[in-house]
Simulated scan of single mutants.
Amino acid sequence: MNSRFVDMLHRALPLVPLALCMSGQAKAAPSPSLCAPDEQVAFSCPIARSHKIVSLCLAPGKTTPPAARYIFGTASHPELIYPAEGRARANFRTSVLGYAGGTGGNTYSFVKDGTQYILFYLSGASLENAGVIVKPVNQIYASAELDCRPSTASHALDDDLLDITNSWGTDPELDGKALPVTKDISIPL
């Protein structure tokens, strides 16, 4: 084989998986989830430095209104399932985040017992981050942020899933804005 062709092939091969992913022809390995086998995964990822997983699961079929549930913990010990009973249409919301410099993302959120739970996915130039933020309602700062292990988040990209989650309505505290941050008391004000 021509050495010039081989050299060009070696330089082009790393771009092939990227091109396939961008064209929608290749799919990443699914992230582990706590969803039942008959549910669709809207969001899921293993939490960094932990054995826990956070998942947002959609009921099978096209129910109206769409049923979903949030699960946090491990398969053998889920710590929080919302809604607690069955597959109900809880107060889930979806929003698009607003950041400068070509960075964007989306969220799924809900409020339970005065606490807001925010599943997020951000991406941009040299940035990919996902996780869950826990914040008391009507507070500026989050009380906790649990990041996903790097490059492990699975989130709804399928048109049918996006149609379902987009029907939930937006969260006015998040839509077009940035995520809340945890207050770092070690930084002098």
Results as ranks from 00 to 15, higher is better:
106 N>G: 12
114 G>K: 12
86 G>Q: 08
147 D>Q: 14
113 D>H: 09
125 A>S: 02
120 F>A: 00
87 R>V: 07
141 Y>R: 13
104 G>N: 06
147 D>H: 13
113 D>V: 03
139 Q>S: 13
102 G>L: 05
124 G>A: 04
83 P>E: 13
136 P>M: 10
97 L>I: 03
147 D>I: 06
138 N>R: 07
115 T>Y: 07
125 A>Q: 12
122 L>E: 05
139 Q>C: 05
120 F>K: 08
129 N>F: 01
83 P>Q: 13
102 G>F: 08
131 G>Y: 09
134 V>L: 14
134 V>Y: 08
137 V>G: 10
122 L>Q: 12
106 N>S: 11
120 F>Q: 05
137 V>C: 05
125 A>H: 02
117 Y>M: 06
110 F>P: 14
104 G>Y: 05
102 G>Y: 06
113 D>G: 05
138 N>K: 12
92 F>S: 03
88 A>H: 11
102 G>P: 10
149 R>H: 09
81 I>D: 02
130 A>G: 13
82 Y>L: 04
117 Y>Q: 07
116 Q>S: 09
77 H>Q: 15
88 A>W: 06
129 N>H: 01
134 V>P: 03
76 S>E: 13
92 F>I: 12
77 H>M: 10
108 Y>C: 05
105 G>F: 08
76 S>C: 03
121 Y>N: 01
125 A>E: 12
99 Y>A: 03
131 G>V: 03
139 Q>L: 07
137 V>R: 12
135 K>Q: 02
123 S>P: 00
77 H>D: 15
91 N>R: 11
111 V>E: 10
110 F>R: 04
85 E>H: 04
117 Y>G: 01
121 Y>Q: 01
79 E>Y: 12
115 T>V: 15
135 K>C: 00
80 L>R: 14
121 Y>L: 01
146 L>A: 15
82 Y>S: 03
96 V>W: 04
126 S>Y: 09
96 V>M: 03
108 Y>W: 10
77 H>F: 10
89 R>K: 07
127 L>A: 00
90 A>P: 05
141 Y>G: 09
81 I>G: 02
125 A>M: 01
136 P>W: 10
79 E>L: 02
106 N>D: 11
149 R>I: 13
122 L>V: 12
143 S>E: 15
128 E>H: 01
88 A>N: 04
88 A>G: 02
117 Y>S: 09
115 T>K: 14
113 D>I: 04
130 A>M: 08
87 R>T: 11
140 I>E: 14
102 G>C: 06
94 T>G: 00
83 P>A: 04
108 Y>N: 13
116 Q>C: 08
126 S>E: 00
148 C>N: 14
83 P>F: 11
129 N>Q: 03
130 A>K: 08
146 L>G: 12
148 C>W: 12
120 F>L: 00
84 A>N: 08
136 P>Y: 10
91 N>W: 10
93 R>W: 01
114 G>V: 12
89 R>I: 00
138 N>C: 03
78 P>R: 15
109 S>W: 09
121 Y>R: 01
112 K>F: 11
101 G>C: 02
93 R>C: 01
123 S>Y: 07
